[in-house]
Design a protein around this nucleic acid. Structure first.
Lengths: 142, 142
DNA sequence: CCTTGAACCTCCAGTCGCTAGAGGGCCCAT
DNA sequence: ATGGGCCCTCTAGCGACTGGAGGTTCAAGG
């Protein structure tokens, strides 16, 4: 079974331009070509692209995805590393949730002080301009 | 009271390069200059930069921050808009938390299936390659 | 077989929110 | 006056794509 780039796109939800970009960056092996130069994808491509997309959606970092792809290529390797990567990812998500929760509390606190007067008395604006309560920045990437 | 860019940086936790970048992008008004061309910041700059930084840390989008800055410049305006922006931000954070929670559940489920065998039998790798359970992508920007 | 128009091709530029480096100039304490 | 730490501008780069221009190929209908 072979697929055009558009079919692959429909099957995976990844846009054609992005698929081409994945190829150019080495995430996806270069596809066969038709006589006229159109890309022809196999089921192997479909699986790999689905894998990449799914891992991205789950928030894995690119290095982790590369590691998982390497693992997937060695079916007799130990599963432990995959498990470790997944667990690390769960911990990462936990940390992110925690941080968002504290942001939410801070914001709700600020917004709760609003008494509906003019901006001059607005606690929201004031609170944002106050140097206090410095927060550490969110880690890059979602 | 005036500050050098380095002092402003120390006071706000924003790097000098980033401060210059904020100026070039119009987030911050251009600073006065010393005879030799060094930037000299006022307390007004300090307040505005703190505001921007704080709002960014709370995850406001750039358009929302611009709107808040516009509001801050009109002290007699109605506070309602600021309140609306803050509330929208709280809802946004809630949605993000919810999404992360479902990602976490999915991942934990996948990782929980790992029985420690070889990669060939690994549910983590398998699950990622499966087209099922498509998730919508995270909104851009943390 | 021919036409048509959707899908495909390559290449290049832009996005966002910064960050880093090169190559120099300024400021001030000793 | 000198040292070295701070500051200046300009340019390029990051990640992870996205969009457009300008041209070619494919497949279905007539």
């Amino acid at each position: 079974m072979t697929y055009s780039i558009g079919e692959l796109s429909r099957l995976t939800g990844v846009k054609p331009t992005t698929i081409r970009w994945y190829e150019s960056e080495g995430w996806l092996h270069a596809a066969e070509r038709s006589e006229g130069g159109h890309r022809l994808y196999s089921d192997a491509h479909l699986g790999r692209l689905t894998f990449i997309r799914h891992a991205r959606e789950l928030g894995f970092e690119s290095e982790a995805i590369r590691a998982l792809l390497r693992l997937a290529g060695r079916p007799d390797a130990d599963c432990g590393e995959a498990h470790a990567l997944a667990s690390a990812q769960v911990r990462e998500i936990d940390a992110r949730i925690e941080r968002l929760a504290s942001l939410r509390a801070e914001l709700a606190r600020i917004a709760g002080h609003c008494l509906g007067g003019t901006v001059g008395e607005c606690r929201i604006i004031e609170a944002l301009a106050e140097p206090a309560a410095r927060l550490t920045p969110m880690p890059r990437g979602a």
